[in-house]
Structure formats: structure tokens, C-alpha cells
């Protein structure tokens, strides 16, 4: 935000009329949030957000979002590496398909999951034989969240991998490191900031998941009713509670976004990276946030 002192001293190359539209754009996002904050019933705020259903929903949301973020990392890192470094036909098609949940309405994701993991679904009968029932369970919530959040991690990480380049990896390989060692000792430490921001974004997306959960997992206190679903339900009878809980979710989201888009200069969550890389300098190339575009 260097807009304050544009104009005279330094050439910024931003036409003035662009600022007007930029302000309008910012208002589109900020105004509704401000309007919501204005409606918060502060006198009852604490009781509203600490009611048993609200706490159950918050706890469930945090647990499931953490689980799906872990799943996103376990599955998303290999996928991002393959997409960034792999050479095989139909790679572009695979990438487009993997990114699909970013633009798909969540309810469509829910329907797709239903026909995959539901009782009558593609894998449903197999899972039932194994004694696994996904529908109406917390596992269904985690699956729905992973489905919508995975692209965030993959996009962030793939961007970091691409901007990071392969020079260090190539050097490590010429020094005799096996591909596995290169991946663990060079590639991963280099992209750790990108991975961290991707993971934080995945967590945020998981926390906000609503449509796929509602369609696929159902809604039961403590089991599948996450905070967004609780808000949706409270809104029917208690708008004050819905607004208060929305504010909680906004606060968490703000914290998460702030964490993900921290300035690259500040010590990121990659404190360990330097040591692990043992001599490799984590370059600024893989700055967090430079990834999502």
C-alpha cells in the first residue's frame, strides 16, 4: 500500500482514475464486513459465542480443518512436485482438473463426493465391506474440506517450485545426491515458505467449507456441524448468534490471511528450514504469497 505518497516524488506508473476504481473494489469487500460488525450484539457477544453448540462447532471446525490441512500436505506436496517438475503427456489436463474445485460450486463438490464415498457411491459398497461408513461422519467433513482446499496448497507450492527453479537441485544431483535426498534436503527446504502459506490457505479454506459439507456430511452437533453450518442453522431463529459466530470466523480468517501473507522479510514459519538445508540458502525466490497468481 504505497498509494499514500504517489504522484510527485517517485514515478509509480499508476493512473489516478485507477485509484478510484481500486477504492471501489476494496469497498466491495470491506463494506459488507463492516456492516456485519456493526450488527454485532456486543452485550450478548460472549454468551452467544460460548454457548455449548457454538463451542462444539468451533472445536469441530478447528479439528477437521487441521486434519484436512494435514491431508492436503501429505497428498498435495507430491502432486505439486509432479505438476511442477514432471514431464509426461496430459500434464496440463491433470493440472486443470486438480484446480477444478477452486472454481466449482461447493455443492457440486458435495454431490460428487456423495456419489464417490456415499453408500450407493462408486467406492461406497467397498468401504462398507471394510466396515467404513463415511457418510454422516466427521471423516466426511474432512474429505469435503480436503476436496476444496487441496488446490490452494497445490497452486501455492507449484508456484514456489517454479519460481525457485531447479539450479540447486541440479547441483545437488551432480554432487551425487539421489533424487530422494535432493527432494528432502534441497527441494522441500527451498519451498518451505510456499508450502507454509499454502498450508495456511488450505486451513482457511477448510475452516470456511460449507456447501460440500452440507451436501455430503450432514449436520449434527459435535459430529458434522462445523461453524459455518452452525451459523447457517442459527440464522433461522437467532440472527444475533449467527452474526456473532460469523465475526468469530472472520477474526480467524483475518488471522490466517495475515499469517499467510506475512512480509517475506520477517522470519516466516521456516525457522527450521535454514538448518535442514545445511548450507543451502533459502532464496527469496520462493517467497510466500507470490504463489497464488
Amino acid at each position: 500500500m504505497t498509494g499514500g505518497h504517489s504522484g510527485r516524488q517517485a514515478y509509480t506508473g499508476v493512473p489516478r482514475w485507477l485509484y478510484a476504481l481500486a477504492v471501489l473494489a476494496a469497498l466491495v469487500v470491506v463494506l459488507p464486513l463492516a456492516a456485519m460488525v456493526a450488527r454485532v450484539n456486543w452485550a450478548n457477544f460472549i454468551p452467544l459465542v460460548t454457548s455449548a453448540p457454538a463451542l462444539a462447532a468451533l472445536g469441530l471446525s478447528l479439528r477437521t480443518a487441521a486434519a484436512s490441512t494435514a491431508l492436503c500436505i501429505v497428498l498435495g506436496v507430491p502432486l505439486a512436485v509432479v505438476l511442477a517438475r514432471g514431464r509426461f503427456p496430459l500434464l496440463g489436463l491433470l493440472r486443470s482438473l486438480v484446480l477444478l474445485p477452486l472454481v466449482l460450486p461447493p455443492v457440486v463438490g458435495g454431490i460428487a463426493l456423495l456419489y464417490t464415498f456415499g453408500r450407493q457411491g462408486l467406492l461406497g459398497s467397498t468401504l462398507e465391506v471394510l466396515g467404513l461408513q463415511i457418510a454422516f461422519s466427521t471423516a466426511a467433513v474432512v474429505l469435503a474440506q480436503t476436496f476444496v482446499a487441496l488446490p490452494f496448497l497445490v497452486v501455492s507450492l507449484e508456484g514456489a517450485l517454479r519460481t525457485g527453479g531447479q539450479r540447486y537441485e541440479a547441483v545437488a544431483a551432480t554432487l551425487g545426491a539421489s533424487p530422494g535426498t535432493v527432494f528432502r534436503r534441497v527441494t522441500l527446504p527451498l519451498v518451505l515458505p510456499g508450502l507454509a502459506s499454502g498450508a495456511v490457505l488450505s486451513f482457511a479454506r477448510s475452516l470456511g467449507e460449507f456447501g460440500a459439507t452440507l451436501t455430503f456430511a450432514g449436520s449434527l452437533q459435535g459430529v458434522t456441524r462445523t461453524l459455518p453450518l452452525e451459523i447457517y442453522l442459527q440464522r433461522e431463529t437467532d440472527p444475533d448468534a449467527a452474526v456473532a459466530l460469523s465475526l468469530v470466523l472472520v477474526a480467524v480468517a483475518v488471522a490466517v490471511v495475515a499469517l499467510a501473507y506475512r512480509r517475506p522479510g520477517g522470519r516466516g514459519p521456516d525457522g527450521k528450514a535454514g538448518k535442514q538445508a545445511s548450507g543451502e540458502r533459502p532464496t527469496t525466490a520462493a517467497a510466500p504469497g507470490g504463489a497464488l497468481t
Partner: peptide, 20 residues
């Protein structure tokens, strides 16, 4: 003790139709 308490009757119906 329902396995899910839905927001609308159409959501309930949907879960019966889909066989869940």
C-alpha cells in the same frame, strides 16, 4: 437420535433419495 439434523426438509428428502 438422527445421524443428521438438516436445515430444510428438502435436504432431508435428498438424503433419503440418495440412499444415504
Amino acid at each position: 437420535s438422527p445421524v443428521s439434523e438438516e436445515n430444510s426438509v428438502t435436504d432431508v428428502l435428498g438424503k433419503v433419495i440418495s440412499g444415504e
